[in-house]
Write a protein that binds this DNA or RNA. Structure first.
Lengths: 205, 205
DNA sequence: TGCGCTCCTGTACCGCCAGTACAGTTTTCA
DNA sequence: TGAAAACTGTACTGGCGGTACAGGAGCGCA
């Protein structure tokens, strides 16, 4: 029971790195078994086919993602009572965390899998959708709390703003990779932070 | 000479649709030649290998992208003298254009190719970088013109704001696909538009 | 001690795919 | 009409995803 999970985790580790670097289609099972030190039969003992590998990969990635957000925005909530201040602190913490990654953000599995929709089955598409909806719920709830205290200076609703957080994260990852400048992602998060501060700033000169 | 370019374009059309739907690695040459109605030898007459196909694909995509932006922000400039108003109109036009696409944005080739960096050679990575830098130059120039007239209410420089436009576009594409809601992309562009209006709004209550 | 379960290994095989090689053929245009 | 452009046809290599199945090592437990 224990040994099996360990091997499974090793396969997933190797697969995640390879998929983010080269794409799912370009990642071969053969290279994974070489890196993990098992045989092909061993691989298929853990995963029925490549699609099941993708599913396990995505599931683990999303869980980990949620854990990180829980941690960061949990800490931010401890640091300030005001919901706006707390959210702005959370964005700052997230920006710092992403800026401290030595080689930049490794890439978002949700993004790489949903942009190649036809390559995966409905179950994976649904997992991607649920992940994005969870982001919306998480950030949307925070914006609703903020809006109970502050009135936004433009007519934007909480879900739109929540999606903007996800948008900037995903877009920042893409742009950082395209430009080959890891700093863009944390930087853009701070730009979003400025926008939000402006949006909820009391209307006075 | 003419016939050759026609066939080449047909291959690129089929390839672009397939790559955006399934990813580059999952797109086989065999399926492209079936769809195009040529033989494998015919394919390799036009492209030395799959990597050269990727290069041609990306080059054509970027050129087309630039053409669309030229057109939209050119029209926006005709509709208003003020650089801020003109830019806000441009964002609105772009949002409407993207919202009118029947199946949503088909996906950004720059994003799919740069997120799988290891699968492509240096030349393609450099093309991606240049494309992103062209976006920065284009939008950055517009923000510089705006800043000669309006003073931003937060300390953000023109290049940061330019990158935010690209970020929202790329992120919006990802989120639209993940959520399976094409409206998110045009919607998020309008959220950005609100932020920018707020940023450059004269400081009065 | 040995039974059974988990966790693999070994071997052999299929069909698809990228890519090579190259000779031959049709089409196009000057 | 002739040369160049734009292909076709055939035959091959090696890698990959996936299947099938027999067997074995280690481990916990009665």
């Amino acid at each position: 029971m224990r040994k099996g999970e360990e091997t499974r985790a090793k396969i997933l580790d190797a697969a995640e790195a390879a998929v983010l670097a080269k794409g799912f289609g370009a990642t071969s099972i053969d290279e994974l078994i070489v890196e993990t030190g098992i045989t092909k039969s061993g691989f298929f003992y853990h995963f029925r086919d490549k699609n099941e590998l993708a599913k396990a990969l995505l599931e683990r990635y999303i869980d980990n993602d949620e854990r990180i957000y829980d941690e960061i925005f949990g800490r931010a909530r401890e640091l300030a009572d005001d919901p706006l201040q707390s959210f702005l602190i959370g964005l700052k913490l997230l920006s710092e965390l992403l800026g401290d990654l030595p080689n930049g953000h490794p890439g978002c599995l949700v993004a790489t899998m949903c942009s190649h929709e036809r390559a995966f089955d409905r179950e994976i598409k649904e997992m991607n959708r649920q992940a994005a909806l969870m982001w919306r719920r998480r950030f949307g709830q925070m914006f609703r709390e903020i809006m109970q205290v502050y009135r936004p200076r433009e007519a934007l609703d909480a879900d739109q703003l929540a999606d903007m957080v996800s948008t900037v994260l995903e877009g920042g990852i893409v742009l950082s990779k395209a430009m080959q400048e890891p700093k863009i992602l944390p930087d853009q998060l701070l730009v979003l932070r400025s926008f939000l501060r402006l949006l909820f700033q009391p209307a006075q000169a």
